[in-house]
Design a protein around this nucleic acid. Structure first.
Lengths: 254, 254
DNA sequence: CGCCACTTTGAATTAGCTCAAATTCCGTGG
DNA sequence: CCACGGAATTTGAGCTAATTCAAAGTGGCG
């Protein structure tokens, strides 16, 4: 574990590339900043710097804290007793981690950093105490849990109703959505995951992921940037949605 | 909508068939009863009788209430804008419904009764007010949300890592688990769903569900009871788990 | 009794998997 | 700076699990 603790006096927020964004995108970005501000005021949570590969918590660890991502990227990995494992979620700035530990008193997943970032540690008991005095903080907490439930259901829907190619497209689309709702630029994704990890997350093999990406590139829905093929450019997010739709309705139009 | 409102003076709890159950199963059953008791004390929520097919709320409806199931069985159906739909959850006695509506102020799914039952309506604002004075009620609420998140992730894992037959077995196993944790008899399941619904829930076709069930019956993992083939007897729940495991490890034993 | 919805089972088709080989990328050490 | 080696990626060629299509079979209910 190479993570180190950073004093609360560290920089308040990361620099956000701020291109032209719509009003509701800016509003959504504000929503996250607002939550972070309130957490800072109420709890002045300790901050921790993490690097790719760092494990924030593991399945089975005793639950005491929730965590909020101030920057960076995490994967949430679910583990079955029999050894099966799956990437069940990708977490971005503003996302909370660890909700699944509340009920049983132990985390049910691993949380692994996929990039350098900063995590705020929120003691659960302290959070509850703070919420008692600040109702809006409780509202934020519930919204975050609710969003997570809704998002997981969306994943399940994609998994169950989309063919492999469309599932990959939808995965990219939802990633773009996440970026957009944080006011980040939506024309490129830096996939900090291998094809194998993406495949595991989407319930398909790494070869199928590779083929799907190649086809999306061939059809000009995405394009690869740079040397490695982990930088994906997306000229128009709409084309991703269109691709998903297209793979549903077999050309009925005569 | 044929549902009717039942006065709060109605019977406190349904009759629970109580065979020999282990201590922690009884404890789990107590957990639910305890939550219901606290809700009753704090809010005296209105009770509503529902019948199979009744729709409690629909995706898009304005969110105002959570609901707690005192008896009966619900399915939660997620709907995509493009018409895709999926049964993303099955709800039993003690389960909460509607969490997904908190964040956006609108429900994201339909909640449809699959059997006669009684639902308690919990005004969200009133609940928050009640929680302010009763911390344990807040704890219960968070536990319920946490459990839902953990459960959804389990579903995703099954979907992504199990072949069709094992997925059906795992579905039955988790249903049995739900019954067990409520102190209900675990040797039979009354599937109040068609093969098509089960298939939709598990991401496979109705034919595949039918074949999987036939194979499970042939292998004596389950057996059909009664005339229709919706009553499933399960002599030993362990055999379901064993079947799931067996379909993972290709006979390595020489 | 007969209709209708649900279920089962079979046969043919296919999407995605497995296996295999070639290629690219990137860090490391000479 | 370049050569080397391991990991990740791409692409091809069968193979298989699950789907689609089709046809009986079964049960519930007016």
């Amino acid at each position: 574990m190479t993570a180190t603790v950073v004093p609360a006096s560290a920089s308040r927020a990361p620099i956000l590339p701020c291109a032209a964004v719509s009003d509701d995108v800016r509003a959504a970005g504000e929503h996250i900043a607002d939550t972070l501000r309130r957490l800072q005021e109420a709890l002045a949570p300790p901050r921790r710097l993490v690097h790719a590969g760092d494990v924030l918590y593991q399945a089975g660890d005793r639950f005491r804290n929730l965590y909020v991502l101030n920057s960076g990227l995490f994967k949430i990995v679910n583990l079955a007793p029999d050894g099966r494992e799956q990437v069940v979620g990708i977490k971005f700035r503003g996302d909370w981690l660890g909700f699944d530990g509340i009920a049983e008193g132990r985390y049910g997943c691993d949380a692994v950093a996929m990039d350098t970032g900063e995590v705020w540690t929120i003691g659960y008991e302290a959070l509850l105490a703070a919420c008692a005095a600040r109702p809006t903080l409780l509202v934020k907490l519930h919204e975050a849990m609710s969003r997570e439930i809704a998002h997981d259901r969306g994943s399940l829907l994609s998994m169950c109703t989309l063919p492999a190619d469309a599932r990959v497209a939808d995965f990219l689309r939802s990633w773009i959505d996440s970026l957009a709702s944080r006011g980040l630029r939506t024309d490129q994704i830096s996939l900090r995951m291998t094809r194998a990890e993406i495949g595991n997350h989407l319930g398909m093999t790494l070869e199928t992921v590779s083929r799907a990406l190649s086809r999306l590139a061939r059809d000009k829905v995405i394009e690869f940037a740079g040397k490695g093929r982990r930088e994906v450019h997306i000229a128009d997010p709409e084309r991703l949605s269109a691709f998903v739709q297209g793979s549903l309705a077999p050309p009925v139009l005569q």
